[in-house]
Design a protein around this nucleic acid. Structure first.
Lengths: 260, 260
DNA sequence: GGCTTTCTTGCCTATATTTGCACGATTCTA
DNA sequence: TAGAATCGTGCAAATATAGGCAAGAAAGCC
């Protein structure tokens, strides 16, 4: 989120401040307390108190570290993660450029993918498969998007469907692009995860996609964990918040990957 | 706010002063009492009294430290569905009494069913099927509940999955209880809906349930619409916010329905 | 005009609200 | 599980508020 330039007023009334916060939440769907505190030049405690009051009045929902709009979507989904939101926003912006009218795509779970879902423009018509509840919620408001949820048992941790049923359902579809996230990525070890069930689903996703696009913040580069989703070669396009020429991406250039 | 240069009048009448204050509020959307007091060269107490009177006359809204224009806050009242929330809560409370540890249940979409999902206690272990995203979200926080989403195309209006895929998925399961809502219910015409697709899904839900529980606010009693979900006899238990002996429920007593 | 009554205004004091800070508890991420 | 971020609470300083009081102005009455 780019902290907007608020009109700088020496003394802001509490009501004004709360109204400003509400406007920001409605505009961006979510805010960070720290951003608001800085933008409005008040202490974080004050913002925290304001948000708490607004929450009590049912004007928004307070979450750890920020607040989210309680608009039509029930993105009241538990803990909205606001970590590295700016980077994720940048990645999602780049990913948008791959979308064409009429495309059939899959969107994975995770905050970066949710951000992509959120940014998809109203006037773009798409068919979107997803196994992520937050992603489905983000997409629901957009009139030109057909949303299809992959059924199955819901993992409360990832808020996605997992398990045999989900994997089976994935085996019966074919999409043009899948946009997936990962816990860890390394040019040698490929994509890895902490959780076994998640790996199985991601494998199924990759299998049902003509092209696979990896969305990952640079922080995850050159890290690995226990269970392997796929080789790095299985990825067709890789998007980070970095400039494509950044040296941090050097080790990925030998592979047949498009880097955005 | 730059204190405007008011025409300096040695003795300003109370009426004039209040009009000036009103003008300022309309112009800037907000004022600080201290600014006004200084600008008009009267004591802060006088301004405070003026603003208090104007507030009582509904000309502006007094807040701590200042006043804001009435138009300023109007924009934020998006209707959030809190319609008849108390009744729905009462219904959900009654429905809770049907739940037993280990039960396998289905929960329909709609605000009454969401309320039921919200109220399910943390320590009750259940397997819950649902085709409603909001219901799934409510259940996700509860550690002892296995949540399974029925896959399919998502209807943005109802925030539930519908269509052939959802119906097929429902045909492959069997649950002890299903808790369903309805658009309209009448002892003669049965359960009816405005939307054809919704009806098809509800039929599939009823078919996969050993027992079907209808949750409906009394407002919907004795109303009907275009498409029929099922006869009233298909319902095993009916729950409204009314006392089970209420005369409004008389026409349902001839049928083999348990009324809670 | 003289008198009282009412209204307005400013000042004072006790109380309430707002705000920022400190510190331990809690939650989140890795 | 460790480290960091965030949260909640209590506290103190600054500011705002409510209500009482009194001086002065305005209005009504004789």
């Amino acid at each position: 989120m780019q902290p907007d330039n608020y009109e700088f007023i020496d003394e802001m009334l509490k009501e004004e401040r709360q109204q400003t916060i509400l406007n920001e939440v409605e505009l961006h769907n979510r805010i960070l307390l720290t951003d608001i505190a800085e933008a409005l030049d008040v202490s974080i405690d004050t913002v925290r108190r304001d948000v708490k009051e607004l929450d009590a009045e049912n004007k928004l929902r307070k979450v750890h570290g920020g607040a989210i709009s309680l608009g039509f979507t029930m993105n009241s989904t538990r803990n909205h993660n606001v970590y590295k939101l700016e980077e994720k926003n940048k990645i999602a912006q780049k990913a948008l450029s791959l979308l064409r009218p009429g495309s059939v795509i899959f969107i994975d779970g995770g905050t970066t993918c949710s951000e992509l879902a959120r940014l998809i423009p109203q006037n773009l018509s798409l068919t979107c498969f997803t196994h992520s509840l937050p992603v489905a919620s983000e997409l629901l408001g957009k009139p030109n998007i057909t949303v299809i949820i992959i059924g199955g048992e819901v993992s409360s941790e990832s808020q996605t469907t997992i398990g045999a049923n989900a994997i089976h359902n994935l085996s019966e579809i074919k999409v043009d692009y899948s946009f997936i996230g990962t816990g860890y990525v390394d040019s040698f070890y490929g994509l890895t995860e902490f959780d076994w069930d998640i790996v199985q689903v991601k494998k199924a996703v990759i299998k049902c996609s003509k092209k696979t696009v990896l969305l990952s913040i640079s922080e995850k580069l050159n890290s690995q964990h226990r269970y392997k989703t796929c080789d790095i070669n299985a990825i067709n396009t890789m998007i980070t918040e970095l400039d494509p020429n950044d040296q941090l991406l050097n080790s990925f250039r030998n592979h047949d990957i498009r880097i955005l």
